[in-house]
Design a protein around this nucleic acid. Structure first.
Lengths: 113, 113
DNA sequence: AATTATACATCGAATATCGATATATGTCAA
DNA sequence: TTGACATATATCGATATTCGATGTATAATT
């Protein structure tokens, strides 16, 4: 994450839950999808991903199941109902925060468009 | 910062530099102004503020001078030219990041307005 | 005289993230 | 067929950010 590291912090859970709200995915798939969709702005590292996934499972926002693919074990993650609700809350918080920052730096907010 | 803590991380430097790009301020004034302008979304704590101000001075983005006000010592901070340039860079990064997050969560971006 | 508000400051704890490292399997080219 | 590379999951220690707690000092208020 290098340069952008600070900017991302705290939002990673939201981004992962958002991905999984569309379909079940395994770890590497999340990293790739995140990277592609954001035009390489989000480059989540495995050292950040797995501890985060484990904690989301522990908190009941995700559950996981194993599947064989090309002989390799893949651990798929699926968002729970609780996870969906939590995602909604995180998005609300993000929107409020982003608008406040935009206001501070004199940037036009989306609500004003 | 409690709930919002994670959302703010990393952007505090940008917000402080942005405030100081308008006028010189002392510590408490920054906290109050930040809080008021953001409708209490940013509640920066002194334990975060002073170490951050010191590091910004150390990096040459700010300089400080003392002034007496009502008998109390106030330490005013002033943004440097280097600080203005750095602020510009931080804002650029923020805009790119915020747009990427908006894209991820399916929110319309400002550039599309 | 005591309390509250203002103001600056530091320290330790908690949290987030990443780089480095480890393990295991499949694929592909020499 | 063997070595290199890609895929995939995982952990650990280091670093950075932030905050709560705490401390000091003065002015204003009651």
């Amino acid at each position: 994450m290098t340069v952008n590291r600070n900017l991302v912090s705290g939002n990673t859970s939201m981004l992962l839950l958002r991905l999984l709200s569309e379909k079940d995915m395994y770890g590497y798939e999340m990293i790739d999808t995140l990277s592609k969709r954001s035009n390489n702005i989000f480059e989540l590292k495995v050292g950040s991903l797995y501890p985060l996934l484990h904690s989301l499972v522990k908190e009941g926002y995700l559950k996981s199941f194993d599947e064989q693919a090309n002989g390799k074990l893949r651990k798929y993650y699926q968002i729970t109902e609780s996870g969906e609700r939590y995602l909604g809350k995180l998005i609300e918080e993000w929107v409020a925060h982003a608008d406040a920052v935009d206001m501070m730096i004199g940037r036009r907010m989306r609500s004003e468009c």
